[in-house]
């Protein structure tokens, strides 16, 4: 099988690897880099369980080829907490009850993190719109919104 060399920075670490053209960024993260935080669910860009940040923007990693990440900077859920310390948004998810089964949560946390980077003090409507690409079948939407609001509020203090 033909593979293509790519250089990609994942969670601050630069990686050189060869990827098959038909493998998505999600495949590359999970299978080649053993970063299983991003999850596989719908594979059509509807559920957001595979959300990661590529060059500053959230994307569904199931709808991007691994080769397209050549030269990109990628942040996955594994790249948020550093030195064993959770980020404020991760803590807030736990404090506000935003986590049940947890399968969608890596994607949710990444989207919430990016949302707060883009807008330090989002309104509830902005949060609901900005998080609509991350399905939660446990139905924690209200708690997740609360976690984002609480994090924004704590940042204001």
């Amino acid at each position: 099988m033909t593979t293509i060399p790519i250089e990609v920075t994942v969670n601050g670490r630069s990686r050189s690897l060869r990827v098959a053209p038909q493998h998505t960024l999600l495949d590359v993260l999970r299978d080649d880099l053993a970063l299983t935080g991003a999850k596989e669910c719908c594979l059509v860009g509807e559920c957001g369980a595979c959300t990661v940040i590529v060059d500053g923007s959230t994307v569904d990693s199931c709808l991007m080829l691994g080769v397209e990440a050549d030269g990109a900077v990628v942040t996955t859920i594994e790249g948020l907490a550093t030195g064993g310390r959770l980020t404020p948004i991760q803590e807030a998810f736990l404090d506000e009850g935003g986590v049940q089964c947890g399968f969608c949560i890596p994607g949710q946390v990444i989207s919430a993190h990016a949302l707060l980077q883009a807008s330090a003090h989002p309104t509830i409507a902005e949060i609901e719109e900005g998080m609509a690409g991350n399905l939660c079948r446990c139905g924690c939407y209200q708690q997740i919104t609360q976690a984002i609001l609480a994090t924004a509020e704590a940042g204001r203090r």
Partner: peptide
């Protein structure tokens, strides 16, 4: 057009 992850691509 889709949710934000889609609009970013």
């Amino acid at each position: 057009v889709g949710a934000v992850q889609i609009r970013n691509r």
